[in-house]
Amino acid sequence: MVEKDMQKMENVSATERVRNVKTFVPRVDIFENKDSLFLVADMPGVDEKTVDIELEKNVLTINGRVENGRIKDATMMYSEYEIGDYERVFTLSDEIDRDKIVATVRNGVLRLELPKAEKVKPKKIAIKAV
C-alpha cells in the first residue's frame, strides 16, 4: 500500500457543514456472498451511539460523529493525524432488504450486513434434459 493510502483522507464535499470539524472518508472493505452484502468501515473514535446509517432508495450514507477526544490540560507536541467526523456515501446496485439490515460497531469498526432482497437473489435455473 502506498504511503498516502495509510493516512486519513479528508472529505471535500460541496455542501457546507453545521459542525465546525473536519470530516474524513472512512476506509471500507466491501464483500458479498449470495445472501448479503457486507460493508466494513474503519471509523476510530466512533461508537454505537454516534454512528448514523441511512438508506434512501439505493443510496447508503454512513455518518460518524467523533466527540472531541482532547485530553484535559494536555498540550499537543507532535501530530500526524487529525480528529474529525466521518462521512461516506455509497450507491448500491442490488436491491437491499432494508428491514433486515444489521449494523454493529466494535473497536472503532463499523460492520454492516445488508441482506439482499428475495427477488434479486440469484436463482439457479435447472435445465431439464429433453
Binding site: M1, V2, E3, M6, Q7, K8, I71, D73, A74, T75, M76, M77, Y78, S79, E80, Y81
Partner: peptide, 16 residues
Amino acid sequence: GQKSPEDYPAINILEK
C-alpha cells in the same frame, strides 16, 4: 509507491 509500514499507525503525542 514504495510501502512504508513503519509509518503506521499515525500518532499524536501530547504532554501532560
